[in-house]
Design a protein around this nucleic acid. Sequence first.
DNA 1: AGCACAAGTGATAATCATTCTCACTATGGA
DNA 2: TCCATAGTGAGAATGATTATCACTTGTGCT
Lengths: 133, 133
Amino acid sequence: MTAPRRVIASAVDRLGRAFTIDDLVAEVRALAPSVGIATVYRAVAAMEAAHAVERVGTRDESALYVRCTADGHHHHLVCTGCGLVAHATCPLDDVPPLHGTEGFVVTAHELTLYGLCAGCATEVSPASELPRS
Amino acid sequence: MTAPRRVIASAVDRLGRAFTIDDLVAEVRALAPSVGIATVYRAVAAMEAAHAVERVGTRDESALYVRCTADGHHHHLVCTGCGLVAHATCPLDDVPPLHGTEGFVVTAHELTLYGLCAGCATEVSPASELPRS
DNA sequence: AGCACAAGTGATAATCATTCTCACTATGGA
DNA sequence: TCCATAGTGAGAATGATTATCACTTGTGCT
């Protein structure tokens, strides 16, 4: 609607990849230096509520977002090399219930996959530390 | 080793369930009121490094921990009713690679399952809001 | 076009979990 | 026993996120 929101939306498009609020603020300010941080937070919250963007995790203690490119239930592939985030279909739909779930009614789940994207996998750098489990 | 660490370890045992640092501080101070918050943070960090405890997620923006009861690769069932956390074997080991992973080398993953434990499932309360996806 | 109201904005202060600093103390080996 | 080292506690510092507040912009109505 308003000018700042338009700038923020186009900055999200320009970035393409996953971004933190700081990344986005930097991109936004390249176009409109007067935009405040609070406004960026509010715009991202609004976009998240409108499913235009989704939170995919955390990097260095600050939230990571991506533009929504898929509808419905899906998960994320996070490249630990470059931060690229891709979408993946849910692998659990066709799977029998887990061991250890006796009496437990599962209503939701979160799955995040870490690894290297095609680009980063061909490079030889083994130094990366994101994942757990 | 030291007295505060012993108190903290036994407080973790007493709690049994998943806990935030605040929960743990309250339990610890019931036994030893003089223990500082920083000490609890440090002790939990040490226990996590020693695999005596693991971080299983977030509740109200603060970290959730459970005592480690299983070795190796596993996942967590979080009851959105009472906060109980159980361990589950990994359902992905027997599953074909996901769609959408072309060229992506998956090296790690995180999975958390949300739902209601046997106790909470028998109660009728439908009000709970934790999960996403 | 003119107007009033609602929503959005920007700066700054506040909040809250977590971490750091620093002076002090307990621990465990020699 | 004595000392180096790790642990401790209080409070300050940090850093991401949110709230506040006065002001502006956009919208719908006339």
